[in-house]
Amino acid sequence: MECVIVKNITKVYGKEKKTAVDNVSFSVNKGELFGLIGPDGAGKTSIFRILTTVLLPDGGEASIDGLDVVKNFKEIRSTIGYMPGKFSLYQDLTIEENLNFFATLFGTTIQENYDLIKDIYIQIEPFKDRRAGKLSGGMKQKLALCCALIHKPNVLFLDEPTTGVDPVSRKEFWEMLKRLKKQNITIIVSTPYMDEANLCDRIALIQDGKILQMDTPQNIIKSYPDPLFAVKANNMHKLLPFLTEYPERKGSYAFGEYAHFSFNGNPDVAALEKYLKAKGLDNIEIKNADVTIEDSFIKLLS
């Protein structure tokens, strides 16, 4: 069952007519964990703000649970949870006061929906009398998630929830999302981190306000057309320009400690190694690489 439906949404900003969201359409099923993956400025936040009814689209329409985001914004507001990218709770109120405040705004109480946030809240409960401004990044994020969940929303919007959070907390956070999914809450999350894309049920790769590809992470990886190789040499700095100059090159770019490389036509590893040797590089290592979402994304951009 489709829960969130977005049809041809467009948003144009300012006098320069900068298109932030360009004719975007997608739909998210009930209980699905959907990811919007893209670099900064791709239009992720604009899409979120339109869906959470705080921004009017310039074209197209969107609905949540059959409610239109423009006409029925009032009804929508009590059925969704939104966690903005920037920490935006009251820094001068304590954990408990913040939670209590947002519960009251939505006409509910902490007790009423306690089981929904219990797993998360229990981790920050020992500090419930501490002011939100004095919490660590990971704890702030847990509190923000609690506040977004306190009214038992049907759809949860998380705008770059893990940006600026340490790797351990990031992992914990995605564990929490998985548990929430089991409660049949539809989750739409945006992130600039490609490694988090694999954790979503379905993702949309987005750039310059346009959706480039939308599928399950597995299918996106599968659809990568060429065999991909990882190349390493003693001088990585020189390796990259040499790879770019290679006549049979289709694509090459730095990827961690390796450079990823794909051939135009049949992959001839031996010829490439010979070429690099001739250029004066040593300790050359060429091996098959596993395709990741990031490779797919780079492919789509080129």
């Binding site: 705080v54 507001r77 903005p84 920037k86 935006s88 709770l89 009251y90 705004l105 006409g107």
Partner: peptide, 13 residues
Amino acid sequence: EGGTIEQINVSPI
């Protein structure tokens, strides 16, 4: 400035 108005705006208040 603190962005809290964003949270208030998405609430039914």
